[in-house]
Design a protein around this nucleic acid. Sequence first.
DNA 1: GGACTGACACTGG
DNA 2: ACCAGTGCCAGTC
Length: 105
Amino acid sequence: MSNFYERVYENVKKIPKGRVATYGTIAAMCGNPRASRSVGAALHRNPSPGVVPCHRVVFTNGTLAKNYAFGGSSAQKELLKSEGISFLRDGRVDIKKNVWLPWIS
DNA sequence: GGACTGACACTGG
DNA sequence: ACCAGTGCCAGTC
């Protein structure tokens, strides 16, 4: 059951389109800002395709997960670009402009 | 109940 | 600005 994981999925679902959130943020929403690791594990375990936009979850530095469960960071990057997310020349997300703050939304 | 693992985050060099 | 090491949490074996 893992109530914690379900909570993570719910939080990720709340991420608005065209915006990204960091693992730390999701963990904070879940109640444990330090559980960022468990958040990533949850997404990799049960991505719930079409239900949980796991592609909107990125690192605090704007980098993408190399082991993305769907098609690698490449697919994730494309998805984000489709949502209108700005990318830097380095290939990482412009976290500075696209990061979503739940308490601000 | 104990130990290992993982899509992270932070600090230091 | 980049790489390496350490800490945290929850889950699974």
